[in-house]
Amino acid sequence: MEQQENKVIIELDNVKRDFIVGAETVHALRGVSFKVYEGEFVTIMGTSGSGKSTLLNQLGCLDTPTSGEYYLDGVSVRTMSKRQRAKLRNQKIGFVFQSYNLLPKTTSVENVELPLMYNKRYNAGQRREAAIKALEAVGLGDRLYHKSNQMSGGQMQRVAIARALVNDPAVILADEATGNLDTRTSFEMLVLFQKLHAEGRTIIFVTHNPEIAKYSSRNITLRDGKIRSDEINADRLSAADTLAQLPKPVDD
């Protein structure tokens, strides 16, 4: 790892995660250690079954390690109760899922407000304000009151990203966030992620698509539950440039 001045957001120390399936033990993570600093855009790659999702569940405090330590923003997650982890997810993490997971028949603002509903410190007015700000940040300032079923896949994923931003999280975790989108929309998403990165957000993006790694600031590759490579991407590409070179869709 290169020396960084920035604050450590995530620190994994020899994290292992075993699953017991019948008589066998599946070692999904076999001792993973790395640090993520504030403002990094990390892609995590690996083939199917290499442990990406298991790792992301650890990072997202949805699961706890069998052994090893995980510090999120300085706090140890391993010994936390379910309740404490729920609070941590609510305040420190923004999730973006492959299949958007928006509430059906619900407007964009209401979808984006959702995490703040579980945070007592926000009142209705503050929630609305934060949600509108987040939607403007993802370029949906004019789609505030559209319902989720009235929007395209790209727009839905933008709403989901706004939802991940609304609580001003320490880290945004994306799991195959472009997996359901066509090439052009995928790059539009990448442009958005690069913009958020430029604004100083910390992003961890799990993908099995090596193309995407070219646009992040650092890439970690997993194999069989271990880190195979961990490299800083010195000459990362601009998603905006790539998008401009793509053939324009016919009906636009």
């Binding site: 309740r83 729920a86 997810r89 609510n90 899922f97 997971n101 995490p115 579980y118």
Partner: peptide, 16 residues
Amino acid sequence: TREIGLRMSIGARGLD
């Protein structure tokens, strides 16, 4: 189920 999963992942407790 998915809505429940989503709510939990963004911070809903079992009680909520």
